[in-house]
Design a protein around this nucleic acid. Sequence first.
DNA 1: GCCAGGATCGTCT
DNA 2: GACGATCCTGGCG
Length: 193
Amino acid sequence: MNRSYFARSVHEVAHDLIGCRLAVGPTAGIVVEAEAYEASDPACHAYIGKTTRNEVLFGPPGYAYVYLSYGIHSLLNFVTEPEGTASAVLVRALEPTDGIDLMRERRGQERLEALCSGPGKLAEALGVDLSLNRADLFQPPFELDEPTGEWAGVEVVTGPRIGITKAAELPWRYSAARNRFVSRPWPGLTTTV
DNA sequence: GCCAGGATCGTCT
DNA sequence: GACGATCCTGGCG
């Protein structure tokens, strides 16, 4: 994987990230849920124009956008599309694979399903905080790899995004089908390939 | 199992 | 001064 992977449509990237392996330091997991936020989208932080906080969204792709939600949780995004076009993929859930004991320690939770099944949870489990805002996804501590083995060609389903009030009806949430680590299961999903 | 409530702070008006 | 791209706990059935 290289930087041009992120220079595509935010929707393509969000879809294709499902099944990819994301490592941050000694912890890692498979991406099983992600959401797309594009510049023309009222729910996107870039919608209001460039500010100090969202500046990285307007820059080149393949960088991390991390911000604080509800004053408590750090949320991890990947900047997509060419420089000048502001969009990002929110990483919403992982299936844990590496450093699981460390994740348990950081999260204060034992259940495997409770470690990375939500954007705030996975950031805490991976040790992602505001200091990683603007970090290059192609440099340590990040490591990203395309799907291998059973994850190659995994079935992806789409549905409405979660936890937003603006443009909540757009089906820009992507997740692995039949996966118990997604942040929230739902009935009647549309299946894509 | 479901729901209500509270924690907590950077960012923007 | 208000508002979140959230999470956990406790109460109730």
